[in-house]
Write a protein that binds this DNA or RNA. Structure first.
Length: 569
RNA sequence: UGGGAUGUGGCCAAGCGGUAAGGCACCGCCCUUUGGAGGCGGCAUUCGCAGGUUCGAAUCCUGCCAUCCCAGCCA
């Protein structure tokens, strides 16, 4: 009974769905494991742009902290100078901020801890838990053994502590070339977990680090750095993806041996989306091969790409919550992301009219030189958004698709002899179809009912449908970029032997067209979002729009139930 | 053939021994000056499979099957 009541209350409050990490935190609260404290971190490596998968992690980490009055740190995991750069740092900071999260003054870099990490390494050496190994990379690999056979111990494994100390110091001083020496943890070469077979924890790299420059020539490895960084920051719940599950014993080993604050690593399944690839390597490839126009191309699943496409932070946050958190590897339907952006934009985007594929109509009984200003509601979902004036005149454009000479049963747009409503304007009836010498319909002759001004039905008569339009004389021409999935297949990795995801590229993922739009749209500011009625959601491109001459990106189409009906017959 | 994980409707996902939440998608109907939005209804006799324990199992036990991850001086 109590359970039922609790359930009902949760439903009423539309409580977020329970998941195992929330459960762990709730349990920790009960056992007072962390003294009631929750502190998470988002730890990107600055070696690429963030994508929607990272967004899920960001929302999870920051969200969990917010829910529990905790804190979240932003920490760059910058231990591999060869791949990292400041450009990536800046883009990541911008993206996390844009998503709406705040890390206060807790912006950290693993590289901030290099000195402490070095000291911890010295400590491990002194404890006899780490040693300098002179084996070459190939030898280390050979000594590691295989999945089914245990490895062999390095001949340097039992080097005296003093010698290790001296060698490690010399490594730091740049006395050795790259690949000549590494520092290894001394754990167990027979472990069935390869990560525990005396893992390398420091390697020599003569590379410029984006923050420390050439101060260091030895760099700590991820496994050694991450756990200690979490510990230093007193992270309670260190959330990462499934592939690190095998690394947890090493994470725990380092913290236990050093006897320091022991954060808990928790793994969840990364996000996958249909019709898209999520690996940084593949995304980099798309950028470098110019398949797309940069990391922020609106077809990219990057946060900057989605932003440019017109997605909102709220939609992405909602999406992150709706997909759930579990340990099951899954692929989320892109339709859910579309649902989230439509739901948000439906409530917030101003409406406007745009004709993408124009068909001219001459309203024969409308005065030649009359021009009217008709009232149009800016957002039926939010009347406070007010209204605007739209010019009307004798010649207008409607969508080619909104007319059919021989309409099928359930088509209730314009057809010979039929009457439709021009949104916010008049009822018109089609009297004549004009074709060119090829039989192509090039113009329609219609009459209008002056009594239907504004679109109201003067005598209560019903019209089949309402269509959008623009005044030919007043409309403006703008560039529209119609985006579609970058890949043709739900699973871009579904290709025959020897193939590649690039074989599954959608050749029509970007179609640029010129459209006729109502004049008010010329004032659109970069990044401003609109719903072009009956067409879709569009966003003025942040980079290619010019003052008074916007370029629009299609964020998503509107749901199109006519397409479904038409598709069935 | 080693180790680690995961299997609940088309896609996600709750469920924690008392008789299958919710969302997306889909299908009806209603409503509508966006075939948008909204409203209402439908959509797993069954939880990878097979046994077992129990009055009772998606939940516990045993076995099997499938899928994913691991042999970077990447993270």
């Amino acid at each position: 009974m109590n359970k039922e009541i609790e359930k009902k209350q949760n439903e009423g409050a539309s409580a977020p769905t329970q998941h195992f990490i929330r459960q762990i935190i709730a349990d920790d609260y009960k056992t007072n494991k962390w003294g009631g404290r929750v502190q998470t971190r988002f730890p990107p490596e600055p070696n690429g742009y963030l994508h929607i998968g990272h967004a899920k992690s960001i929302c999870l980490n920051f969200g969990l902290a917010i829910e529990n009055n905790g804190l979240t740190n932003l920490r760059f995991d910058d231990t591999n100078p060869e791949k990292e750069s400041d450009e990536y740092v800046r883009s990541i900071i911008e993206d996390v901020k844009w998503l709406g999260f705040d890390w206060g003054d807790r912006l950290y870099y693993a590289s901030d801890y290099f000195e402490q990490l070095y000291d911890f390494a010295v400590q491990l050496i002194k404890m006899g838990k780490a040693f300098v190994c002179d084996l070459s990379p190939q030898e280390i690999k050979d000594y590691r053994g295989t999945l089914t056979e245990s490895g062999k111990e390095s001949p340097y494994r039992y080097r005296p502590v003093e010698e290790n100390l001296e060698l490690f110091e010399q490594m730091r001083q740049g006395k050795f070339p790259e690949e000549s020496h590494v520092l290894r943890a001394k754990i167990d070469m027979a472990s069935p977990n390869l990560n525990m077979r005396d893992p390398v924890i420091y390697r020599i790299k003569y590379a410029q680090h984006h923050r420390t420059g050439d101060k260091w020539c030895i760099y700590p490895m991820y496994d050694y750095t991450h756990c200690l960084s979490d510990s230093i920051e007193r992270i309670t719940h260190s959330i990462c993806t499934l592939e690190f599950e095998d690394h947890r014993p090493l994470y725990d080993w380092v913290l236990e041996e050093l006897d320091v604050f022991h954060s808990q690593q928790i793994e969840f399944a990364r996000l996958n989306l249909t019709y898209t690839v999520m690996s940084k390597r593949k995304l980099l490839e798309l950028v470098e091969s110019k398949v797309v126009n940069g990391w922020n191309d609106p077809r990219m699943p990057t946060i900057s790409g989605l932003r440019r496409r017109g997605f909102t932070p709220a939609a992405i946050r909602n999406f992150s919550e709706l997909v759930g958190v579990s340990k099951k590897e899954s692929v989320v339907d892109y339709a859910l992301l579309e649902y989230c952006i439509r739901e948000d934009l439906n409530k917030t985007a101003q409406r406007a009219m745009a004709v993408l594929n124009p068909l001219k109509i001459v309203i024969t009984n409308y005065p030649d030189d009359l021009e009217e200003e008709l009232d149009a509601i800016n957002n039926p979902e939010n009347l406070e958004a007010g209204s605007r004036k739209i010019p009307f005149s004798k010649e207008i454009y409607i969508e080619k698709d909104d007319f059919m000479e021989n309409p099928p049963k359930r088509f209730y747009r314009l057809a010979p002899g039929r009457e439709v409503r021009l949104r916010y304007a008049y009822f018109i009836t089609c009297n004549e179809v004009i074709k060119d010498e090829n039989g192509e319909i090039i113009e329609l002759r219609c009459t209008y009912d002056p009594a239907s001004r504004g679109g109201a039905s003067p005598d209560g008569r019903r019209v089949m449908g309402t269509i959008h339009w623009v005044s030919a004389r007043h409309s403006k021409k703008v560039e529209l970029r119609l985006y579609d999935h970058l890949f043709l297949k739900e699973d871009p990795y579904d290709f025959p032997e020897g193939g590649d995801v690039l074989d599954n590229l959608n050749p029509n993922s970007l179609v640029k067209i010129a459209a006729f739009v109502e004049p008010s749209l010329m004032k659109a500011k970069p990044t401003e979002r609109f719903q072009f009625e009956r067409v879709g959601y569009f966003c003025a491109d942040e980079y290619d729009s010019n003052e008074g001459q916007p370029v629009f990106n299609r964020t998503a189409t509107l749901r199109d139930s006519w397409a479904k009906i038409a598709g069935k017959s």
